[in-house]
Design a protein around this nucleic acid. Structure first.
Lengths: 244, 244
DNA sequence: AAGTGGTCTAGACCACGTT
DNA sequence: ACGTGGTCTAGACCACTTG
């Protein structure tokens, strides 16, 4: 995977500067940003460039825009730390929610996928691949159990177990033939089972959230599949949806 | 709430025309759209306007864009019908997933909110408001149980029970002092309980998804709160997350 | 090398909110 | 009435993908 150093675009530079200024309290009076024209002058760029910056910030839930009046800082969304509509791995989510992430165990094996997994990945039955199993902890306690399926065609190189990055998106940048473009997550509830409790090294549990993830390349082909089990007593999953 | 008829913008017109053409198979050869320049010529608008249309389509997961190559139709996301990262009510979700939505019962009462609800809505304890309780069905079977809390300050007029629109976003447009701008949804898993099974008119259940929603106005004030219980055997909740 | 999308500018007019 | 963001144009150059 080629890595290129981009010259940052003007609008991304402006975006980062505005975000820093918000954090320092230097720019937003009562959480209200200066007008687009004023920002354009501050950064010596055109209004279109500032609009590009503000648009990307609104898409990420950092600010609100309203026709006729200045943009405002969105403290509500800025305070969320378990958003599953963002491309973050679970280690990052655990860390973002204020717990110390860790790995209780991790195993790697190569085998044929069962028909259910093969179907999710649009593969012929008995296609082979890598299966990574992980138990993640928050502050030392088991919270997330993961099983990750990587078809042989996906990985252009198989890293050693200890070289697997904790984040699948980073893994895709380093070792996938094609990087992950987007992920579809499907959520259901499951009762605790003997095998799950054993895998998570728990004696009992209340309810678990099950999350099935299919990761797609930018040409809409599935390239990886995960099953994740989450102890929801620790983690509350969040999603933001905006109108329009 | 004032209702104005907007002249549709050129980019929204182009967007809708492109979407129609995609559906009819008239525009995308092998799911690949014409170039931005070609589209601009087709609709007699500038390239910037077409880019605006395509950008909004990509934000909604309808197409993928790649630097250097034409945009492509995203059949994967187009096929999803239970996305909870879109501002849709549950009636719409049930309908979108191919079941016939219905209401098994619906009650309305006015009372003081308990401290948990008051806190979510940033209200003083014992603040009063309207509580709407609903049991929704898919193909006649109970699937979603809802309890919706509307503070007195939110509703500028309280509709009769039978006049409540099925969709909370529509309700907000018609009867809220300020419309809903965005919603934060928090997901957890719950075991079945006596009271929940009774409310849902079920004898037994497997697991339930609990979704707590706080609806915010565009000035980031919470204006409504819902608790929703979902029989996940019927409905799989979906979220799409894109990188960058 | 050619074609395509990404970024950027300067200027214009309109629609909305506030006063 | 005024200031603000929303839409739109025409033109330019750069970065990426493709043949």
């Amino acid at each position: 995977m080629k890595k290129v150093l981009h010259r940052p675009s003007l609008y991304m530079t402006a975006r980062n500067a505005i975000l820093d200024a918000i954090e320092e309290g230097e720019i937003a009076q009562n959480d209200r940003l200066p007008s687009e024209e004023a920002l354009a002058e501050m950064f010596s760029v055109s209004r279109a460039t500032i609009r590009n910056a503000l648009q990307s910030m609104e898409n990420d839930g950092l600010i609100n825009k309203r026709h006729g009046s200045e943009a405002t800082v969105n403290r509500v969304c800025l305070g969320l730390n378990m958003r599953i509509d963002e491309a973050k791995g679970f280690s990052d989510l655990i860390a973002a929610s204020g717990h110390t992430p860790g790995e209780i165990y991790k195993t790697l094996e190569r085998k044929a996928f069962d028909s259910k997994v093969a179907k999710k990945l649009q593969l012929k039955k008995d296609s082979e691949g890598i299966v990574l199993t992980k138990l993640l902890s928050g502050d030392g306690n088991p919270v997330v159990f993961l099983r990750e399926y990587y078809p042989d065609t996906t990985l252009h190189k198989v890293p050693d177990l200890e070289d697997f990055p904790p984040d699948i998106y980073e893994l895709s940048d380093l070792y996938f033939a094609k990087a992950i473009s987007y992920t579809v997550r499907e959520i259901s509830a499951v009762r605790e089972s003997e095998s799950l409790l054993k895998a998570m090294k728990l004696k009992s549990g209340t309810g678990f959230i099950k999350m099935e993830e299919i990761h797609y390349s930018d040409d809409n082909n599935p390239i990886a599949y995960n099953e994740t089990y989450i102890r929801d007593s620790i983690m509350k999953l969040q999603v933001v949806c905006r109108r329009m």
